[in-house]
Amino acid sequence: MSSSSINVPKIPSAAETKQQAAEVQSQLSNSLSTLVHNYASTTPARVKLIDSFLLFCVLSGVLQFAYRILVTSFPYYAFVGGFGSTVGQFVLLAGLRAQVAPGRDSEFKAISQERAFLDFAASSVILHLFCFNFLG
C-alpha cells in the first residue's frame, strides 16, 4: 500500500497517503468485482467449463515440470507423455473455446457448436492414445 506513494517525489501527509491508498484499493477491487461479475453473468456455462479445464491443464503442467526439474525426468518418455497430454489438451481446448465463445471470429461463424465439439473430442481421443503410448 505504502509502496504506491514511494514513486511520488513530493512526500504526501499520512492522511493523504491513507486516503489515496484506500482509493486505489477500492478502485482495484471495484474493477475486479466488475470483471468477475461480468464473467459470471455474461459467459455461457460451457465456456466456463472450458476455462476451468484450461486452468486444470495449466496447473497440472506446471506441477509436472517442477517435478521433472526438482526430482527426476526418468523415464523421459513418461514425462513427455504426461506433459504432452496436458499441453495438447490445453491447445485443443483453446481451439474449442475460440470456436464456441460469444465473441468468436467471423471465420468460425459457419461452424456449428456441435461440429466444433466433435472435432475437439475426436482429436482429444487421438491425443490421449498417443500420450498413453508414450508412457511406456
Binding site: 467449463l49 497440472s60 526418468f74 508412457l135
Partner: peptide, 29 residues
Amino acid sequence: ITGAYPFYGATVSVSVAFVLFCGMWLGMG
C-alpha cells in the same frame, strides 16, 4: 517405475477430466 508415477497420474487425470468434461458439456447442451 516408481519415479514416473506423477507422469502416469497426470496423463490419467487429464483423460478422466476429458471424459467428465464431455459428459458435462453434453448435459449442458
